[in-house]
């Protein structure tokens, strides 16, 4: 089919605008990477305005990767991201699918129940006591189970399942499948884009596990990567002031900017690699169309 002039104009404008957006988002990331390879002295001399370092150095990375905890922490984080995401996806999608079936009794009540958990939180201490009473302190499961699913994701994912027609199940049920069979054999394969998106959300969430680990894990050999990295860079910028704080700081080593940036790169690079693999599932027109037709 021939493309109209206005269509071409639109394409050109669209490409340009997106390129601009890309550059705007890329530049600060470029900066972070460059600083991570810069010599701290050069960073200081240029007062942070480093666009291209005079000499590249891997010192920051060597330091961060040298600790014995690093390897372990990476494994823990990978475990969380893989096992946690898998479990979360199964539980969330099953729950959302169930709630998306209009014949389910009590579904509106359950939706409300979930909604309330999004809005009302119990603070810090009750969840801690619960985790303790479940015997999960010091267990990696304390970093998965309490965040296994979330109201946000259940409600959002449900909206994806809402569009799956009832007829689809009915035909399968006639063939002798149960709801569970329908869910795993028909519904999930049809929902790859949603699974990819929510899988990414969960994976990122698990990979970034930090605060729960501070509270629930005493044994540092079970700390996830984010915690281990942040321990090496005690961050003063959000700490409250006061004399005592200033004096505690005096004994610390304020990390150089270059080290901080290297930590950012190490902490985010692995999870950034996940997205391109998921991307193919965002391709237009999954099977749903063909099934319906």
């Amino acid at each position: 089919m021939k493309r109209s002039i206005s269509g071409r104009l639109f394409d050109a404008a669209n490409i340009t605008v997106l390129a601009l957006v890309g550059i705007l988002t890329l530049f600060p990331l470029y900066y972070v990477v460059v600083v991570s390879f810069t010599d701290p002295a050069e960073y200081i001399r240029k007062q942070g305005y480093v666009l291209f370092p005079q000499s590249w150095t891997f010192d920051s990375y060597n330091y961060l990767l040298s600790t014995s905890a690093f390897k372990n922490a990476t494994l823990i984080s990978a475990f969380l991201a893989i096992v946690g995401t898998a479990l979360s996806l199964v539980v969330t999608s099953a729950f959302s699918y169930g709630l998306s079936r209009k014949r389910l009794q009590g579904r509106r009540f359950m939706m409300l129940l979930i909604l309330i958990t999004i809005l009302f939180g119990p603070g810090l201490i009750p969840p801690y006591l619960l985790v303790r009473d479940l015997g999960l302190i010091n267990s990696v499961w304390s970093l998965i189970l309490p965040v296994l699913t979330s109201g946000w994701y259940v409600i959002l994912m449900k909206s994806f399942f809402d569009s799956i027609p009832v007829e689809l199940e009915e035909s399968a049920v006639i063939d002798g499948s149960t709801d569970i069979g329908v869910f795993f054999r028909i519904v999930l394969p049809l929902s790859l884009p949603a699974l990819a998106a929510f899988g990414l959300f969960y994976a990122v969430g698990y990979w970034n596990t930090f605060f729960n680990a501070v509270l629930y894990i005493n044994d540092y050999t079970k700390w996830p990567l984010q915690l281990v990295l942040r321990n090496m860079l005690i961050d003063s910028s959000t700490q409250a002031g006061g004399t005592a704080a200033a004096e505690m700081m005096a004994e610390q080593n304020i990390p150089t900017e270059t080290l901080k940036m290297a930590a950012v790169v190490i902490a985010t690079f692995p999870i950034l690699c996940v997205y391109p693999f998921l991307q193919k599932h965002f391709a237009k027109g999954v099977m749903l169309g063909s099934v319906k037709g």
Binding site: V214, I234, D235
Partner: peptide, 21 residues
Amino acid sequence: ITWASPNGWEEKQNVLLASGD
């Protein structure tokens, strides 16, 4: 010895105090 992370040890301190643990 429980070595609490320097990032967030105050919160942990509060939780321990509050929980009686």
